[in-house]
Structure formats: C-alpha cells, structure tokens
Computed example of a mutant assay.
Amino acid sequence: MPKSKRNRPVTLSKTKKKGREHKEVIVSGIRDAVDSYTSVFVFTYENMRNLKFKEFREQLKSTSRFFLGSNKVMQVALGRSIADEIRPGIHKVSKLLRGNSGLLVTNMAKDEVRQLFDEYEDYDFARTGSNATETVELKEGPLDQFTHEMEPFLRKQGMPVRLNKGVVELVSDFVVCEEGKPLSPESARILRLLGNKMATFKLYLVCRWSVDEFELYKEAPDDSDVESL
C-alpha cells in the first residue's frame, strides 16, 4: 500500500484560534477515516433536513462515516492536487466537493451504496423562498378543514376569509402559490396547514474513490447553483 501522506502539516485559512482548532479536528477525522475505510464517495443533496439526515446516517454508522461542512476544509483534508493528496488519485474527489456536498467514507460495497442513495427520499413541507412545485388554489366557499379559531390567523396570512355560522369561509378564490415561483412566508404557512408537502429531501452520489478505482457518477453543481448549509 502506498505510504500515507495524512501526517503532512496543513496550512489552513486565517481564522480565530477556536475556528482553526475545529478545522484541524475535521481534517484529522477525515484523514483517519480514509485510512480506515475502503471507499470514499462525494454526495450532494437537495432540501436538506437535519433530522432526516441524522436518521439516514444512523442506519449506516456501523459501516460508514459522513462528513458535512466547509468544502474547502474537506478539500484540504484530502489534498487538492497530486502534490498534496493523501492517497493516490484522491484529489479527484476533492475537486468535486462543490456546493451542497458531503463525504461518505465506507466499507460498504459500491452497489449497495448506490442502491441506498437511489432509493432514499423523504417529503417535507417547503420553506420560505423555495420554488413551488405546483399551483395551489382554494375555491370560494367553506373551508371545512379549519376550525373557527383559525379564522383570525388565516386572515393574517392574506386569505380573504370570514366566519359564516361558525364555519370558516373564503369569500373569493385564493391562490396560495404558483408553480415555479418562490414561496412567501404566508404561502409556506398555509401549505403547512393544508398538509401539502412540496419539498423532497434527496441525496445524489457524485463519485467514488478507492485505492484501485475512481468512478464519476454525475457532475457536482456549481457553488452558484445551490445554497450552502
């Protein structure tokens, strides 16, 4: 096995002492994991939900480790070029850490990992600023799903409602959101009340590295295309 370069000194960006120490812990953890596991995957994600990701990570904790955080710190840990990479060819992984990305370091078979990622998705309520995946319009008339106590709150969200004999009623048609347009805070709240889950938390594999193989599955997005954690 080629000699590991993981013990080389690392120059990190200018930070306060506490921040630097934290980065050094991450770098050390990644390098330890690369030495201990057989494969390294880069993955990207959409609509991250921390609780759901924690549950997914727990399923694999006996065979794998996940790393999320600063792409630059993870790149430093792996090495950004042939000259400073910690294992032969692993700088190719580093170059694909862009945007909403993370590392999976694992002993699982590659086909098993790909199946898990391909099959995993979880639905949740969309957040303010997310693009609506469909147009939602409520028609004039009674809104039986809401109790009369909800009428003042619904009015504050911009809905043209009134109480009619104790029943919440729309006095005119109301468009909650339009497909492809960003959700306002009010729209996001109404969709939650309606039980309409527009966000899909999804993980995508970008590439895999092992001692004897590098596989590219899909291109990682540019930093400008996604919002970091």
Rank of each mutant, 00 (worst) to 15 (best):
S4D: 10
S4Y: 08
K5H: 07
R6T: 10
N7Y: 08
N7R: 08
T11D: 10
L12Y: 00
S13K: 14
S13G: 12
T15Q: 10
K16W: 10
K16N: 15
K18C: 07
E21N: 11
E21T: 11
H22A: 13
H22G: 11
K23Q: 14
V27Y: 11
I30G: 03
A33M: 04
D35E: 15
S36C: 12
V40K: 09
V40L: 10
F41H: 07
V42C: 00
Y45G: 02
E46V: 12
N47A: 13
M48N: 05
R49P: 04
L51W: 15
L51Y: 14
K52C: 15
K54M: 06
K54W: 01
R57L: 00
E58S: 13
E58N: 15
Q59V: 04
Q59A: 10
Q59C: 05
K61M: 13
F66C: 03
L68E: 06
L68Y: 02
S70L: 06
V76Q: 07
G79P: 01
G79D: 02
G79F: 06
R80K: 13
R80Q: 09
I82M: 09
I82Q: 12
D84S: 04
I86L: 00
R87W: 06
R87L: 05
G89D: 04
G89Y: 00
S94W: 13
R98K: 15
G99C: 01
G102R: 01
V105W: 08
T106M: 00
N107L: 08
N107Y: 00
M108W: 01
A109L: 11
V113D: 03
R114V: 11
E119H: 08
A126S: 09
A126Y: 09
A126I: 08
A126V: 02
T128E: 14
G129D: 08
V136Y: 01
E137M: 14
L143Y: 06
H148G: 00
H148Q: 14
M150L: 15
R155T: 09
R155H: 10
K156P: 10
K156W: 07
G158V: 00
M159T: 03
K165F: 14
K165L: 13
K165Q: 15
G166Y: 06
E169P: 03
L170M: 02
F174C: 02
V175W: 05
V175D: 06
V175T: 02
C177D: 01
E178P: 02
E179M: 12
P182M: 00
L183N: 02
S184W: 06
P185Y: 10
A188S: 11
A188N: 09
A188Q: 07
R192C: 02
L193T: 07
L194N: 00
N196C: 09
K197F: 03
K197C: 05
K197T: 00
M198R: 05
M198H: 02
A199E: 10
F201P: 05
K202A: 06
K202S: 09
L203M: 09
L203K: 02
Y204T: 12
L205R: 03
L205C: 07
R208K: 08
R208V: 10
V211W: 11
V211I: 12
V211Q: 13
V211R: 15
D212T: 05
L216D: 02
K218P: 05
E219F: 05
P221V: 07
D223F: 10
V226C: 05
E227Y: 10
S228K: 14
S228T: 11
L229N: 07
